[in-house]
Write a protein that binds this DNA or RNA. Structure first.
Length: 260
DNA sequence: ACGAGTACCTGGCAGC
DNA sequence: TGCTGCCAGGTACTCG
């Protein structure tokens, strides 16, 4: 579920509540969760003060006073909430009087993991049309597969890759190397616009209401979604189609009339 | 070496 | 109503 805008929304909610507080509890609540954690990562966070709450791609990073950090990933179904334990609470962090619970029914989320190699932040100056062009040019894979490759650019998932390709009028299955420089400029611009608007909107809360910020508020970007989960394009009104084969294992919708 | 496919999980929902 | 199968915002592995 959570892509860059949702994770950034979570970060903005956490930062003012957690910064400067000392961690008093940092515990896995359900056995079998999080077997990929770095050994000792949770224990090392105990008693440390939270210096900052950062985000890199879809990862949340708590910077700690001992110079280490605690990395979280929400996976597909992960959600953080203040207070409140539930049946799917996998992990709890307490600092000062604040308690944050990590709920994750599908258990794809992680806590205390290593940060992998990631491409540039799409809303930073390091992400340029030229970077995108060079990354796409190297590969025969579909352009959408490449946009969702976190080493190309960090933070895009199925929703926002789909939306950006629609705005840039490029079919998701087109090989990356066949996207021209001019189209890359349009795609770069579309990615920046979609993500900026989605961050401002507080992320996407689709009909199943799977995304809520830590205070329980839904996002607003679903009002602007053109393609994802729709039958017709919101802007163009044309019937949407799915690619014959999924790309990177995901359903890929596009407008056959507008996207080439 | 690259890229496609699959495994990891559970819940919700459409269809029979 | 109740079963079955299918699908889901992600990542990381394996295999050809």
């Amino acid at each position: 579920m959570p892509e860059l805008p949702e994770v950034e929304t979570v970060r903005r909610a956490l930062e003012p509540r957690l910064r400067g507080l000392t961690i008093s509890a940092c515990e896995i609540r359900k056995p079998g969760f999080n077997h990929k954690a770095l050994p000792g990562a949770l224990r090392a966070a105990q008693g440390e003060t939270i210096a900052a709450v950062r985000r890199r791609g879809k990862y949340l990073i708590l910077d700690l006073s001992n110079g280490k950090n605690l990395v979280l990933h929400l996976g597909m179904s992960g959600r953080l909430s203040f207070g409140q334990n539930g049946p799917h609470t996998r992990f709890v962090l307490r600092a000062g009087s604040v308690s944050v619970a990590f709920h994750d029914p599908r258990r794809f989320g992680r806590v205390g993991c290593a940060l992998p190699l990631l491409g540039p932040e799409p809303l930073s100056p390091e992400f340029t049309p030229e970077h995108l062009f060079r990354a796409l040019k190297k590969s025969r894979a579909g352009v959408k597969t490449l946009l969702m490759d976190q080493r190309v650019v960090a933070g895009l998932g199925n929703i926002y890759a789909t939306e950006a390709l629609y705005l840039a009028k490029i079919r998701p299955g087109r090989p990356g190397r066949r996207v021209s420089r001019a189209e890359c400029a349009a795609l770069h611009d579309a990615i920046v616009r979609v993500l900026s608007l989605a961050v401002e909107s507080g992320g996407s809360t689709l009909e199943d209401e799977s995304f809520l910020d830590p205070a329980g508020n839904p996002g607003g970007f679903q009002k602007f979604v053109n393609v994802y989960g729709r039958k017709a394009g919101r802007a163009c009104g044309h019937a949407l189609k799915a690619t014959p084969k999924p790309l990177a294992g995901r359903t890929s919708l596009y407008c056959p009339q507008c996207q080439k």
